[in-house]
């Protein structure tokens, strides 16, 4: 197992470099070519949620991404500096009812559908941690 940790300010400008980085890592560890963009979309949706709901889009606050690769999977821990609960976030699941036409709030829904495993919990520091696991063939 090897771990890569990256620390990002809560700024949208970091998303495009992050997208390229995630896809590079994915390609390196064997994620199928056709699935690379799905992986990067899932990760970036969760990072954006951390920036917004955990860090209040404060560029001084950091989102930390820890990436561990195993023989059969790649795991992302996405830690922010807040303690938000996903079920409490406004517009968490706009896929139902009147919220279908909400202009925001689809990120977690998309991440959960694209990734094989997404789980919310707490980091050792007691802050929000989202874990995404992507199996490798």
């Amino acid at each position: 197992m090897r771990t890569i940790e990256i620390r990002l300010p809560s700024e949208l400008s970091v998303l495009e470099p992050l997208q390229l980085f995630v896809e590079s890592i994915g390609k390196y560890v064997g994620v199928e070519e056709d699935e690379l963009s799905s992986l990067s979309v899932a990760v970036i949706e969760l990072v954006k949620n951390g920036m917004e709901h955990g860090n209040g889009n404060d560029p001084e606050k950091i989102v930390t991404i820890s990436i561990d690769t195993f023989q059969s999977r790649i795991r992302f821990h996405i830690d922010d500096e807040g303690i938000w609960e996903p079920d409490m976030a406004p517009g968490f699941d706009p896929g139902e009812g009147e919220e279908l036409l909400s202009c925001r709030g689809r990120g977690v829904l998309i991440a959960r559908n694209l990734a094989k495993w997404v789980e919310f919990g707490l980091s050792p520091k007691g802050k929000t941690r989202v874990t995404l696991i992507w199996p490798l063939n």
Partner: peptide, 16 residues
């Protein structure tokens, strides 16, 4: 070449 929920949000806004 790549789009996430923010793109969908703009499309929904346009629809409205």
């Amino acid at each position: 070449t790549w789009m996430d929920s923010s793109g969908l949000g703009v499309i929904v806004s346009g629809h409205t």
